[in-house]
Each structure stands twice: as C-alpha cells, then as structure tokens.
Amino acid sequence: GPILLDTYRVIADFTKTSKHEIDLHTGDLVEIVEKNQNGWWFCQGESKRGWIPASYLEPLDGPEEAEEGEPDYEGEMFVTHKAYKAEQRDEISLEVGETISVIHKLLDGWWVVRKGEQTGHFPSMFLHRAGRQEV
C-alpha cells in the first residue's frame, strides 16, 4: 500500500551549505522519509530531495505532537569522538575522548549533555555510546 510520510511546515528560511542539502522557505510543506538522530532529516519533495535541518521544521498535524523523548536526568554515558567548541551560550565545549552523560536526546540533533557541573547542548553526531550507566 501507499507509504504515508510525515509532513512538516518550514518555520524559517534555510540556505543549503552542501550538495546534498536543499534550500527551505518559511511556510513550505515538506515530507520526511528519514529522520536521522543527528538532526539532519531527508526530505522528499515534488521536484527536489535532500537533507534539511529538523530544527527548521514543525509538525503539520499538531505542533504539540510529542516525538521527542523525555529528559533522562540520570543520563546515558557517551564518549565524544570529535571536539566541538561552543558557539552559543547554551552549548558546551568538549575535547575528543571525553565521557559525558546525555540528559536529553533532542530531535534537532543538539543533545543536552552533562559533564561534571557543566550542562549544555552538543552535536549528537560527535558522540558514540559508551555503554549503559550502572545504577
């Protein structure tokens, strides 16, 4: 039978930054065929297809739709495999090989992580699982 794809509305203009991305215009409707947890979603349009940032989309059917999991305050252990330097105030800077706790896996790919006393957003694509935290 037909595959029903989730439709989203574009909430801000987006200009592509690499070959396999596509431009978005506020108010456009897009159908998503793959939701990568790194925050890049694959859009299948009538005339174009490519990766777009989930952070620029809202669900067409009810913005209250809860696709996102709840925060996990105990945290799940991950290790950074790439360094990232914070560019915004709510982000956290980490070096390669740091073990951190993931508190909230946000759909936009910018997970909330904790290291010691510090908490902030970090790109999920630079993390890999370190195994479950023991209680």
């Binding site: 690499s18 790194n38 694959f42 297809r49 989930a54 952070s55 620029y56 989309l57 809202e58 910018w110």
Partner: peptide, 22 residues
C-alpha cells in the same frame, strides 16, 4: 536508501522559532 547525511552539525534552531520547533 538515501545518501549519508551531511558530516557537519545541523544549524541550531533560529532563536525566534525555538518554541515552535520539533
């Protein structure tokens, strides 16, 4: 079935739209 996603982190949500984002 689709090409690999970009290797750079996606942009953060535009500040004025954060409340509406997915």
């Amino acid at each position: 079935t689709v090409k690999n996603p970009p290797q750079n982190p996606p942009p953060r949500p535009p500040p004025e739209t954060r409340r509406k984002r997915v």
